[in-house]
């Protein structure tokens, strides 16, 4: 019983007697669907607020940059989990591929960051596309195990290919040129945050557009009722392959950004923990809400920073409690809970 944000608009728009369209003007149903994709003032406020760290927390810009990367990674998982209902426990595979692709590209070709991003996205998309043929055939537990297996496989491959990846020492010799030939990646993280935030925002715009496209509607259809889709003539597997490839490309971009802003790549980029963490972020924030991964990433990363300040070895303890509380009390994540609350308020 959670009316999504747009549905309240329907009260104003819905008048069956004048439902027929005027000549030339968009019909009421079109106007209604357009209203669902319109920018909400809170969205604009959210993006303006992402600029605040530059002024309020100038000493925390490295953390802010990591948060932006985590948010981008969570956004990519949201496409497959939140919109198409595909649970993955191996999403770090694409993050890692992107990170190593960008790192190696800067080491052996050149250090221009944007071309590095494109190479990373292309590599991750390619591997994503190839594995999507397996992914699209399975659901539920089988799928979780397959994605987990693929993730572990890749992590082990990167570990044993030490000549290329540097193995457990990490990839050395990553050199990234200044952004636009001007903004150097410095120790304070000013450029790093500006760069990560800009990439996050641009990718977010693209994902937002995707969600409000006919393809986005079909993905929601898959999530809402996978078995009905063939009965409306939909080739769900083709949709899933496409969504998985796009999500892989975005995860690759996230990995590339972390490689470029930290100028190193470690095996941790491919680790199971990273796959699990991103899942936790998305569930905390609320899957299938576009902003869920973003909010989840902020909460997760800030909580980790704070908890590890208190007890460095036990910071997962705090995350664990937070996760349990959220899933027990707010099944649709923090944003889902907030939406429910505001819906109740506006009804009064």
């Amino acid at each position: 019983m959670i009316p999504k944000s747009g549905n309240r608009l329907s009260d104003k728009i819905m008048r069956p007697q004048d439902a027929m369209s005027l000549a030339g003007a968009p019909s009421q149903p079109q106007e209604y669907l357009r209203s669902l994709s319109r920018w909400h003032p809170l969205e604009i406020a959210f993006w303006l607020a992402t600029l605040l760290p530059f002024f309020l927390f100038p000493t925390y810009l490295s953390l802010a940059s990591q948060i932006a990367v985590a948010a981008l990674f969570a956004l990519s998982l949201d496409i497959i989990l939140g919109y198409a209902g595909i649970v993955s426990l191996g999403h770090a595979a694409f993050f890692g591929i992107g990170a190593y692709a960008a790192g190696l590209f800067s080491k052996f070709v050149w250090g221009e960051p944007f071309s590095g991003l494109l190479i990373a996205a292309a590599m991750a998309a390619l591997i994503g596309y190839l594995t999507s043929f397996i992914i699209a055939r399975f659901r539920h537990l089988t799928l979780i195990m397959i994605t987990l297996g693929l993730g572990l496989l890749l992590a082990e491959a990167a570990n044993s290919a030490g000549w290329l990846t540097g193995g457990s020492d990490g990839l050395q010799g990553v050199k990234i040129w200044p952004v636009f030939g001007y903004f150097k990646f410095d120790l304070y993280g000013t450029t790093a945050y500006g760069y990560s935030l800009a990439v996050l925002f641009l990718v977010f715009l693209a994902v937002r557009r995707l969600i409000h496209s006919p393809f986005g509607l079909s993905l929601r259809g898959i999530r809402e009722n996978w078995t009905r889709m063939p009965a409306v003539g939909a080739d769900s597997r083709a949709h899933i392959r496409k969504a998985y490839t796009i999500a892989a490309a975005i995860a690759g971009i996230a990995g590339a950004v972390i490689a470029q802003t930290t100028q190193t790549v470690s095996l941790e980029a491919l680790s199971f923990e990273r796959s699990a963490d991103v899942l936790v972020m998305l569930v905390l924030g609320g899957a299938g809400r576009l902003y869920g991964g973003l909010v989840g990433a902020i909460i997760f990363m800030v909580a980790r920073d704070q908890f590890s300040g208190i007890a460095p070895q036990y910071w997962y303890f705090g995350i664990g409690i937070l996760l349990i509380l959220v899933v027990m009390l707010l099944p649709n994540g923090i944003l889902g809970g907030l939406a429910k609350l505001t819906a109740r308020w506006s009804r009064k």
């Binding site: 669907l33 995707l210 409000h212 509607l217 409306v232 003539g233 939909a234």
Partner: peptide, 24 residues
């Protein structure tokens, strides 16, 4: 409306378009 539009888009072959707006 969304559900039936989804089915119509699937029939028309536009359901794979991720760069066009649903409202258009």
């Amino acid at each position: 409306l969304e559900a039936v539009t989804l089915a119509v888009c699937e029939r028309r072959g536009s359901s794979g378009e991720f760069w066009s707006k649903l409202s258009s």
